[in-house]
């Protein structure tokens, strides 16, 4: 009779639990988002508010070995964001400290 296990029937139920909570979203193209989840659908389209986007930009060093380079991190903030589901890799609650 553990509600945490019995209450979840499909993967989307887990996302549902995070509604109006802050979530961490990993996107394709080395992008990450944190924001408050407001809505989602079966395509994993998301609507987030108070979003901070983190973009990893890898600058390959010339003459260096492949895969080595400096990683630049660009950040930006958005009040409200629609995330198209095809770019979503994972959605998780932010790690609690």
């Amino acid at each position: 009779m553990d509600p945490s296990s019995s209450g979840i029937q499909e993967p989307f139920d887990l996302i549902r639990l995070s509604l109006s909570e802050r979530v961490f979203v990993k996107l394709r193209g080395d992008r990450e988002l944190t924001g408050v989840l407001h809505a989602y659908d079966g395509h994993m389209n998301l609507i987030l508010s108070d979003v901070e986007e983190t973009i990893m930009i890898v600058d390959p060093i010339e003459g260096g070995i492949d895969g080595h380079g400096t990683v630049k991190v660009a950040k930006r903030k958005m009040e409200m964001l629609f995330v198209r589901g095809d770019g979503v890799i994972l959605v998780s609650p932010p790690s609690r400290t």
Partner: peptide, 14 residues
């Protein structure tokens, strides 16, 4: 219809 089971069982148990 997508989340039919969350409240039911938990509700009863609780």
């Amino acid at each position: 219809g997508t989340h039919p089971h969350i409240s039911k069982e938990d509700g009863n148990g609780a």
